[in-house]
């Protein structure tokens, strides 16, 4: 079928141009398509899709290791192997464990908790671009995707926490009611991570280069969070403000709180100053800020 795009044929019916389309639309209760809903309405839509978010996260999680022979065993093996590698390098080869009682629980808590933030950030960046197919067909608040991505990481964290509990007990740390403090700490971290995933999802959807750059930024951040060593050893001789900035960084705050909850030799004195207000503040600022930032570009996702 060759189409010769000659001059247009006689238009049988002139395209109907309503004298006032906006008024006609208003008269019949039609709403403009592809326009970002106001924030309260957006939150309501998001709440209405909560089942979708949970079902999406669960299905993704089960599909994640579906092609691996060992299947779901990887949920537990991945954190274990991670901790093993870091123990080999930092505990045995470099010997940074000096002065830290219960080094293995200390290290594993750090690795698992920071990994939650790290992987939320990484998968948040790809939340939009990985799901373009879904976005271009179905209409739902796009914030579902970064939130679902965080939820997937949270589910993985819970597996890691099970492993961690076993490691900590095996190392002779007693199980006390103090462990319950880990619940609010991780919940706040989860809100922080969701906000960060939302913010990064918008940036990653617009500037695709971010996905290449982010792993380096995250690795740098990891070394500033005192996962393998007590950060104080390094900040002792640094100017006061450097120590204050490092201690207030959210990566360290949530990590310190979880360690404080689980390990009896980590005392309240070793925590950064004002640690609970800091944890709450970071969660609120990042959670709300990230959500609003993401919502501002709602109608732009999936373009092109």
């Amino acid at each position: 079928m060759t189409v010769d795009l000659a001059p247009p044929p006689v238009v049988v019916t002139a395209p109907l141009r309503e004298p006032d389309p906006a008024r006609l639309a208003a008269a019949h209760g039609l709403s403009a398509s592809g326009v970002r809903p106001p924030l309260p309405e957006y939150v309501r839509q998001l709440w209405a899709r909560r089942h979708f978010v949970v079902a999406y996260a669960t299905s993704r999680l089960t599909a994640m290791y579906a092609t691996a022979k060992l299947g779901q065993a990887w949920q537990v093996m991945t954190p274990l192997l991670n901790a093993g590698v870091y123990y080999l390098v930092f505990g045995l080869l470099l010997g940074t464990s000096h002065g830290i009682a219960h080094y293995i629980p200390y290290l594993c808590t750090g690795v698992f908790v920071f990994n939650f933030t790290q992987s939320s950030a990484l998968s948040g960046t790809r939340a939009i671009s990985d799901n373009l197919g879904l976005i271009r067909v179905l209409h739902f608040p796009r914030a579902c995707l970064p939130i679902a991505v965080t939820l997937i990481q949270l589910q993985q964290l819970l597996f890691s926490m099970g492993v961690l509990g076993a490691i900590v007990l095996a190392c002779g740390v007693p199980l006390t009611a103090h462990w319950l403090l880990a619940v609010p700490a991780l919940l706040l971290q989860c809100v922080f991570n969701a906000g960060m995933a939302l913010a990064l999802a918008r940036i990653g959807a617009k500037v695709t280069d971010v996905a290449q750059l982010l792993p380096f930024l995250l690795r740098t951040w990891m070394y500033f969070c005192g996962i393998f060593y007590d950060l104080r050893v390094f900040t002792a001789h640094a100017p006061h403000w450097v120590a204050a900035v490092l201690e207030a960084n959210p990566g360290l705050v949530y990590l310190a709180l979880t360690r404080y909850a689980l390990i009896d030799t980590v005392t309240a004195r070793s925590l950064p100053a004002h640690v609970w207000p800091l944890a709450l503040g970071w969660a609120v600022v990042m959670g709300v800020g990230g959500f609003v930032f993401f919502w501002k570009a709602e109608e732009q996702y999936g373009r092109g």
Binding site: A22, V137, E299, Q300
Partner: peptide, 24 residues
């Protein structure tokens, strides 16, 4: 895709009754 609200228009407007669904 523009009618479905999946592509923002450069100029002009699309008004719809409810949420249109696109099936491709």
């Amino acid at each position: 895709r523009a009618i479905a609200g999946l592509l923002p228009p450069e100029r002009g407007r699309v008004y719809t009754d409810g949420q249109p669904s696109l099936l491709g």
